[in-house]
Design a protein around this nucleic acid. Structure first.
Lengths: 235, 235
DNA sequence: ACGGATCCATACCTGGATCCTG
DNA sequence: CAGGATCCAGGTATGGATCCGT
């Protein structure tokens, strides 16, 4: 029997209800209900949690140009958090188009579209057992003007550097809330990026990631999906 | 257990030996030796014979830009033939690049590369039973000057017509030895082709096919892989 | 009989993220 | 801890061709 997937939510209210209903559930419960296996060594289960939550909420799988909930314009992100609610690391946003970097603009960027409206679903990590992890309190996020200005400044800096031929000298240290990091099957995968002279060089594919501190602030500030209340202890 | 695949042949002589050794074998024998299943309704087994012979000869699977035997520059084609050795229909050559049609040239075309050196493997069809079909006498083919002129003329006509915006009015009736026909998962798949005014229209993907009469002539004329003899009754 | 439509296998690509060493 | 490297699932594209109604 193939794994199950719920139908897409019809509106934001339905998504909010479904998300709230996941709070407190263990991944084991979800996996069993949907017919998904969480077994395997930790190295081999990297994307499973995200895909499990996609199924549980009725997100459309593996769709490139569209958000996870196309009818709602909402993107879904799971965030691994410690028991105190702080995120355990950075979070992937999207692949960076290195080749087109010199023509990129924030207004039309994938980063901006993906972060315009996000449903963050915390997953509380206590041990190594995937099935034992529990869903925290889901939160909708829209960047404040201040947050968007910060994101935009980082985006312009990073993609601007790539655009003038600095892809190979950029490290993940650049950027205050966004960073560029490798994003590929392995280090052998190559793609094109501008050099400093209008031509192109081969380099590894990169993705945009949100730094931990930024995610932490978002989780602390954002209203919860169930009550609309703002609070720091609502997971 | 996954199906087996022989290692690539090191040179043309090794390929010639392997091909000759397949003559007279039934597809059932090959399938069993390689751990491949030929079961299923006829509609569902369309590409299996070709892939079975690829495995048996050590061709590299599903490789786009490269020939089936990259080290040798040789392309592999199976050809279903009646018991008298005549081909049962046309043969697929490659996908046509409609979008780039106005920039296409025979010299750099995929059609020319794919047909420059081909190993044709006849498969003798007597009934509906796949496993009962037998491999005929394999033949290497290089176009004669006359054949290449004919192919080139058809290619120029066909791709030229697409290049000036006639993709939707072209039928498989055009071309003496080459033709253009639909090539897609289904009729809903669309791709871009030039219109008559420098812009593009949506139309179904096409492939180049060799007409039956052309294949028949090739099989009748080509030396057999085993003896180098030329003959019309060597299958 | 053949022109238009279709079907399977498999490689590749993208989105889902976490792993792991210094 | 965090930067660089990696891993799985699933959809899409391509190469393998034959099906089937007119």
């Amino acid at each position: 029997m193939p794994p199950l997937r719920r139908p897409p939510p019809r509106d934001l209210a339905e998504l909010r209800l479904r998300a709230a209903a996941l709070s407190g559930r263990s991944l084991g419960e979800l996996a069993r209900a949907l017919g998904v296996s969480l077994a395997g060594p930790p190295q081999r289960t990297k994307g499973l949690v995200g895909q499990l939550v996609e199924r549980a909420l009725g997100a459309t799988a593996g769709n490139a140009a569209e958000p996870d909930f196309p009818a709602l314009g909402v993107e879904l992100k799971t965030v691994p958090v410690a028991p105190d609610g702080t995120p355990r690391g950075s979070t992937f946003v999207c692949t960076a188009d290195l080749e087109g970097a010199s023509r990129a603009s924030w207004a039309t960027s994938t980063v901006r579209r993906r972060l315009a409206h996000v449903l963050f679903v915390p997953v509380i990590v206590e041990g190594d057992e995937l099935a034992a992890r529990r869903i925290g309190c889901p939160r909708f996020f829209r960047p404040t003007d201040e947050q968007e200005a910060l994101l935009r400044a980082d985006f312009d800096d990073l993609i601007g550097a790539v655009g003038v031929g600095e892809a190979d000298t950029l490290t993940a240290r650049a950027g205050r809330c966004l960073q560029l990091r490798p994003k590929a099957q392995n280090a052998a995968v190559q793609t094109l990026a501008p050099d400093d002279d209008g031509a192109f060089i081969l380099t590894g594919p990169r993705g945009f990631y949100l730094r931990r501190a930024f995610i932490a602030a978002v989780l602390a500030d954002a209203p919860t999906a169930s009550t609309g209340l703002v609070g720091k202890a609502t997971w």
